[in-house]
């Protein structure tokens, strides 16, 4: 780790100014990923602009019935918030499926969105990685890639995004608020906050240099809709997702047909993966297990597995079908058979 300067910002503007004044600097909030990457030599900031004490740690009601989550709200506080638990249990579940109690006490909402991939090649500066060092190559493509992406990857990068929270936010149609300066704020859909690697895997998100996440807006929950988050992993706790699914399902109480379905996969792609094809096919349909399976397969048919990660397709299909069946109160089709 190289020496770096440290600035504790007392306002957003001060933070943005400090960022501009220190080329090569990084914003620091909880630091659970950034400090980790600095120790690995993956991140080598010249300065850390500490935004953890900015007044961005509130959860407030929005006039439309939604919630505003400040960027520095800690993951554990967000998961424990009674409004979140009552209105967005999906989000609480996803948060609690991630990391450990002590990490969730420190990790922030904004930082969770900005965490970097856990690809082993990305984390090892002695090896090629286009995300870390553009142009150096992707070692994972032919290498160890059991945990890597089957959707949305490019020839330059097959890393997955590791966040569980972001998967729930994508399914909830959340928006990310960005501050770029006194006259420069914008919001971005959570589902499109992370970008696909294409030719520039070094850019994980659409965030511009110097921009700061100030919060996340959750739209009002759909009345009557039910939701579910489920994650499969290599051990019972404290492990990244092999695959996960977040589903919001709204059924017409009259005829039982799907009025609206929002489905996002985690662990499959460089970003939380909204299954738009599945959603489109299910909307207006009766959630019969065969219909659900066909709709899920229509999305997963786009997958391009590599040598050792094709299991993710089956896993994702099982997770999605089981989740929808649970929410719809139907029996799932027999899982795990081709």
């Amino acid at each position: 780790m190289k020496p770096f300067a440290y600035v504790r910002a007392t306002s957003l503007r001060e933070a943005a100014d400090a960022y501009a004044a220190h080329p090569g600097s990084r914003y620091l909030a909880g630091g659970t990923n950034l400090v980790d990457l600095m120790k690995l030599g993956v991140e080598t900031p010249t300065a850390l602009i500490d935004i953890s004490r900015l007044p961005l740690d509130g959860i407030t009601e929005l006039p439309d019935g939604g919630l505003h989550i400040g960027a520095t709200v800690r993951n554990s506080d967000l998961a424990a918030d009674p409004r979140v638990r009552a209105r967005y249990p999906l989000l609480a579940r996803a948060l609690l499926a991630g990391a450990s109690g002590q990490l969730r006490n420190v990790a922030t909402t904004g930082g969770n969105l900005l965490q970097r991939t856990r690809c082993g090649y990305f984390q090892d500066p002695s090896k090629p990685c286009n995300k870390r060092e553009p142009g150096s190559g992707c070692a994972a493509r032919e290498g160890i890639h059991r945990d890597h992406a089957v959707l949305g990857q490019s020839e330059h990068c097959i890393a997955t995004h590791p966040s569980d929270m972001a998967v729930a936010l994508a399914a909830l149609d959340a928006e990310v608020e960005l501050y770029g300066g006194p006259d420069s704020s914008r919001t971005v859909e959570a589902a499109h906050f992370h970008r696909l690697p294409a030719d520039h895997p070094e850019q994980d998100t659409v965030i511009r240099p110097g921009e700061i996440i100030t919060g996340v807006r959750l739209p009002a929950p759909v009345p009557g809709a039910r939701s579910l988050h489920r994650k499969a992993r290599d051990r019972a706790s404290y492990a990244f997702a092999l695959a996960s699914v977040a589903v919001v399902l709204d059924l017409d109480p009259e005829d039982g047909r799907v009025r609206r379905c929002a489905l996002a996969f985690g662990g499959l792609a460089p970003r939380p993966w909204r299954a738009t094809e599945t959603e489109a096919r299910l909307t207006g349909a009766a959630p019969h297990p065969d219909t659900v399976r066909a709709a899920v397969d229509a999305e997963l048919d786009r997958a391009q597995p590599l040598r050792d990660n094709a299991y993710k397709i089956l896993l994702a299909r099982n997770l999605a079908c089981a989740a929808i069946a649970t929410l719809a109160g139907t029996r799932p089709g027999a899982p795990a058979t081709p």
């Binding site: 440290y6 504790r8 620091l28 630091g31 659970t32 400090v35 980790d36 120790k39 690995l40 850390l48 500490d50 953890s52 554990s76 450990s100 109690g101 002590q102 990490l103 006490n105 420190v106």
Partner: peptide
């Protein structure tokens, strides 16, 4: 582990548990 992966460094910071290996003291 020095990377927030084992919990052996857990302390209470303002009363809440945290991995002390991932917190920079200056913050």
């Amino acid at each position: 582990c020095d990377h927030g992966q084992c919990g052996a460094c857990t302390v209470l910071v303002d009363g809440r548990r945290a991995n002390s290996c991932l917190l920079l003291a200056v913050t």
